[in-house]
């Protein structure tokens, strides 16, 4: 049985995959379906949803198309979530591998640094970083990764500590392989599966952090973000609650979809590992 068909036998994983597929489609086709600037004025201000079918989800305080904003917001959320998760997994895997494989002083320095980052709440870290360096998409990604790499680093180190005692690592030393080649060619690839298992949680958390930063006005001002939409809608929450509810639902579904699909992948690969 192929991994894909095993994945498709889990209903929660299928639900997650469908949500994710929709989300990717929204992000991909955003400029096709809604060409032009999503932040341009498209109609009367504060048009409620389902009134005008050219503006199905209505307009916001400034008369911008909410549906176009939701589509373009999906781009930002996905881009930031995936980029931040990839960056933190990469940093974490490298730091964890070096610490676990080198041991001694290198391990001590790297792990105490990890401790230092872990003791500061990651959201405060991101907040401080963005408010000092200034908001832009790249900075937001870096700020989120700054607080998220410690988990992967710890998992990678623990895995490397067990792998470096295996015979094949001793075997690589016996044939004269360079220590760095052993760390990154022999050890790291085999330490990755449990680290990658963290990715769904990290992507979901990164999307939420990005939304929170945007909500506080620290997102990239040139991009539509769901967090920013909720923040805008907050001022008219009593008269036009849909302005906060629509991006809120998008956010909830996205995080849920990422999490379910990610867990499904982890579960199926875990089954395969235990079988082999």
């Amino acid at each position: 049985m192929s991994p894909l068909s095993r994945l498709l036998r889990r209903p929660e994983a299928v639900a997650g995959a469908i949500i994710l597929a929709l989300l990717f489609a929204m992000a991909l086709f955003a400029s096709l379906l809604f060409p032009g600037d999503p932040q341009a004025i498209a109609g009367p201000a504060l048009l409620p949803p389902f009134q005008d079918w050219s503006l199905p989800l209505g307009t916001d305080r400034l008369g911008r198309d909410v549906l176009a904003e939701v589509f373009h917001g999906a781009r930002t959320s996905l881009a930031v979530g995936l980029a931040a998760a990839a960056a933190s997994l990469l940093i974490g895997a490298v730091v964890g591998t070096l610490a676990g494989f080198a041991g001694g002083l290198v391990d001590e320095v790297l792990m105490r640094t990890t401790d230092a980052f872990q003791t500061v709440p990651s959201f405060l870290l991101a907040l401080a970083f963005v408010s000092i360096v200034g908001p832009s998409l790249g900075i937001v990604v870096a700020a989120i990764a700054l607080g998220a790499w410690t988990g992967p680093a710890r998992v990678a180190r623990a895995e490397v500590l067990s792998i470096r005692e295996r015979d094949y690592v001793a075997g690589a030393r016996v044939i004269g392989m360079h220590p760095l080649a052993i760390a990154f060619r022999e050890v790291l690839p085999n330490a990755l599966p449990p680290v990658l298992a963290l990715s769904s949680v990290i992507v979901a958390a990164a999307i939420l952090t990005e939304a929170a930063l945007s909500f506080l006005g620290l997102g990239d001002p040139n991009r539509v973000t769901w967090g920013g939409m909720i923040a805008e809608g907050r001022t008219v929450l009593r008269t036009a609650p849909f302005l906060s509810i629509v991006p809120g639902i998008a956010l909830v579904l996205t995080v849920l979809g990422v999490y379910l699909a990610g867990e499904g992948v982890v579960e199926t690969t875990a089954v395969r590992r235990s079988l082999s």
Partner: peptide
């Protein structure tokens, strides 16, 4: 050179 007891664990999986 060296040859290990368990040939499965002596190679990268």
């Amino acid at each position: 050179q060296m040859v290990f007891q368990d040939p499965l664990s002596a190679f990268n999986p």
